[in-house]
Design a protein around this nucleic acid. Structure first.
Length: 509
RNA sequence: GGCGGCGUAGCUCAGCGGUAGAGCAGGGGAAUCAUAAUCCCUUGGUCGGCGGUUCAAAUCCGUCCGCCGCUACCA
C-alpha cells in the first residue's frame, strides 16, 4: 500500500478576485502534489474557498446580491483560476457547504463537551465606521480625550457577548510540539516568531460573534455565529470526512503539509494545533509559509496599476513558463519581486536556450543521422558515465531539496545537469563524430537522450505540458513517466517523432 | 520599546573557523549540430563600519550604522 500524503493550500477568502499570490501558493502546492504522486505516494491535494464573515457580507451588500450569490460567483472564479494554473487538486472545498457546517458544528460541540469553550464578553475599542476592533496602542488620543483609529474613525468601548476558546491552557503543549517536531513550522524565521509569540503567553480567544450573521450558527445558541478562524481552519478535516472518523478519506489525516502565506502562519501554527489538541484530534505534521510578491519593486496596488493577474500572464507567456518562473526566481519562504524582464530572461535563457535548445540539437542529430530511431549505448567513456550518473542522481537530489520546500534549489539541481549536458555535447561534438566514428556518435546521442529523459521526468511536476511533449519526443511511453520508471532504460531502435521546439524564445514586440 | 532576521562581485544569492564562490550582466576566443542557441577563458569584491577572541574570522563575541519581520483575535 502506498504511503499517503495530504497537502493543502489555504482556502481563499472570497471578498476579492484571485491574484498572483493565490496562484503562487496553489502552484507550489501543485508541484509538490504532482511530485509526490510520481514518487509513489497516495496523494490528496485540497484547495477551496473561505466564504463566511462580515467582509463577505459587506461585499455582497455593496454588490447588491445575497451573500451566497456573491460567494458562489467569487468561488467559481477561484475554481477557474485553479484550472487555468493547471492545479490538480482532488477536492475543492467551500465553507458554505453542508458538509462543512456539519463538521464545524461537530468540532465545536466536541470542544464544548471537553470544557474548552465558555461564554463571556468580548470588549474593546470598536470603530463603527470600520466595523473593526483596535488595540489600545493603535489608537491616537485626541485633545478632547477621545480616541481615533489608525484609519481616522472614531472608536468607542463596546462589550459584546462571545464564546471563548481556552487557548491559554495550551501554551505549554504547543511549545512541546514545536520542541519535539522542529519542522512543524517553517521557514526558520517564522518558527522563531511563533515560538516567541507563544512564549510570551497566550490569552483565550473569542470564537463567536453576534454582530453579523453570515456564518455557521453556534450549536445551542443561534444568536452567535462562529468566528472566522475556527470555521476556516476546520475545512482541512471537513474534506477528510469529519466528523465521520471512519470515512474512507480520514486515513489522510493528519495533513502532511499546510502551505500558507506568511500572514496566516499564526493561525495555522498556533490556533489550529491548539483547537485540535483540545478536541483530542491529531495535529498536522507541518505548516510552511511563503513570502509575498512585489511588482517591479513596488507593493502591488490597484491605484499604481501594477497588480499582476496570473491568468493574463499565462495568456502571454504560457502556463509552464509562469509556473517555472514563480518557483525558480525566488527562494521559497522569502519575499520576491516580480519583474517582467526577469521572467523573459528566465524563459529565454534557461528554458529556450539551456534546455529547449539542448533537446532540439540532440534530437535533430538523431533525426538526421540515425534514421529517426533511438540509438543504443555502446562502449562508454568516463565522460559518458559521469553524465549518466548525474542523471541517475537527479531524483534524489531534487527530492532532498523539495522535502525542505526549496523549490528554487531543486530546479537548480536540474539546471546543473542541463548545463553539464551542453558542455558535454560541445566536448564530444557528435556532428564531427558522424564522419569519424559513427558508433561513438550514437553512444553520445544516446547519453544525451538518457539525460534529457531524466530531466524531463523530474521537471514534469513543474512544467507538466512541456515536459510531456519532451518525453513524447524522447520516445518515453505515457506509462513510463514516474521516477521509478527511470531505472528501466529505453529500448534502442524505437522510432522517434520528428523533433519540435518545446520552448520558443520570447521576443518582445 | 521588546524579540528575531538580514547587509558578500553591477544584479540575484550560496558559503557560516583554514588562502573569497555560483548564475545573470560585462570582456576575449572557439565552434557552427541547434530555437543567432552552445562551449572555453576572463574582468570584477578591504565579505556594512569599528573593536575583540583565535595560530587562523564573511564565518565566533561585542558594539555602531542601514534595511526588514513579529509584537493576539484585521483571509
Amino acid at each position: 500500500m502506498k504511503p499517503t500524503f495530504y497537502i493543502t493550500t489555504p482556502i481563499y477568502y472570497v471578498n476579492g478576485a484571485p491574484h498572483i499570490g493565490h496562484a503562487y501558493t496553489s502552484i507550489a502546492a501543485d508541484v509538490l502534489a504532482r511530485w509526490k504522486r510520481l514518487d509513489g505516494f497516495d496523494v490528496f491535494f485540497l484547495t477551496g474557498t473561505d466564504e463566511h464573515g462580515q467582509k463577505v457580507e459587506k461585499a455582497a451588500e455593496a454588490a447588491g446580491v445575497a451573500p451566497q450569490v456573491f460567494a458562489d460567483r467569487v468561488s467559481a472564479d477561484f475554481r477557474d483560476m485553479a484550472v487555468q494554473m493547471g492545479i490538480t487538486n482532488d477536492d475543492f472545498i467551500r465553507t458554505t457547504e453542508e458538509r462543512h457546517r456539519r463538521s464545524c458544528t461537530a468540532l465545536w460541540q466536541r470542544l464544548a463537551d471537553r470544557g474548552q469553550i465558555y461564554l463571556d464578553a468580548y470588549e474593546g475599542w470598536y470603530a463603527v465606521r470600520d466595523e473593526a476592533f483596535y488595540g489600545e496602542d493603535e489608537l491616537a488620543k485626541q485633545p478632547d480625550g477621545s480616541f481615533l483609529a489608525p484609519t481616522g474613525a472614531p472608536v468607542e468601548w463596546v462589550r459584546e457577548p462571545s464564546y471563548f476558546f481556552k487557548l491559554s491552557a495550551w501554551g505549554d503543549k504547543l511549545l512541546e510540539l514545536y520542541e519535539s517536531h522542529p519542522d512543524f513550522v517553517g521557514p526558520m524565521a517564522r518558527r522563531n516568531e511563533v515560538l516567541s509569540f507563544v512564549k510570551a503567553g497566550l490569552t483565550d480567544i473569542s470564537i463567536s460573534r453576534t454582530s453579523f450573521s453570515w456564518g455557521i450558527k453556534v450549536p445551542g445558541d443561534e444568536t452567535h455565529v462562529m468566528y472566522v478562524w475556527l470555521d476556516a481552519l476546520t475545512n482541512y478535516i471537513t474534506a477528510m470526512g469529519y466528523p465521520d472518523e471512519n470515512a474512507e478519506k480520514w486515513r489522510y489525516w493528519p495533513a502532511d503539509l499546510h502551505l500558507v502565506g506568511k500572514e496566516i502562519v499564526r493561525f495555522h501554527a498556533i490556533f489550529w494545533p491548539a483547537f485540535l489538541m483540545a478536541a483530542g484530534l491529531p495535529v498536522p505534521k507541518r505548516v510552511y509559509s511563503h513570502g509575498w510578491w512585489t511588482s517591479e519593486g513596488e507593493k502591488m496596488s490597484k491605484s499604481i496599476g501594477n497588480v499582476i493577474d496570473p491568468r493574463a500572464l499565462v495568456e502571454e507567456f504560457g502556463l509552464d513558463a509562469v509556473r517555472f518562473f514563480l518557483l525558480r526566481e525566488v527562494p521559497f519562504g522569502g519575499d520576491g519581486d516580480f519583474k517582467r524582464k526577469a521572467l523573459i530572461s528566465r524563459l529565454n535563457v534557461e528554458l529556450a536556450n539551456d534546455l529547449g535548445n539542448l533537446a532540439q540539437r540532440s534530437l535533430s542529430l538523431i533525426a538526421k543521422n540515425c534514421g529517426g530511431v533511438l540509438p543504443g549505448l555502446g562502449e562508454t567513456t568516463e565522460d559518458d558515465q559521469n553524465l549518466l550518473a548525474g542523471a541517475d542522481a537527479l531524483t534524489g537530489e531534487m527530492r532532498a531539496k523539495l522535502d525542505r520546500l526549496a523549490f528554487s534549489e531543486a530546479l537548480e539541481e536540474a539546471w546543473k545537469l542541463i548545463r553539464a549536458g551542453n558542455g558535454y555535447i560541445d566536448r564530444q561534438a557528435p556532428w564531427a563524430l558522424r564522419k569519424t566514428d559513427f558508433p561513438r556518435m550514437e553512444t553520445v546521442l544516446r547519453v544525451l537522450v538518457d539525460l534529457l529523459r531524466a530531466v524531463a521526468t523530474n521537471l514534469r511536476p513543474f512544467m507538466p505540458a512541456s515536459m510531456g511533449k519532451m518525453l513524447d519526443q524522447l520516445g518515453v511511453s505515457a506509462e513510463a513517466r514516474g521516477f521509478a520508471d527511470l531505472a528501466q532504460k529505453l529500448p534502442a531502435g524505437v522510432a522517434l517523432p520528428a523533433p519540435q521546439g518545446v520552448f520558443p524564445r520570447f521576443v518582445e514586440e
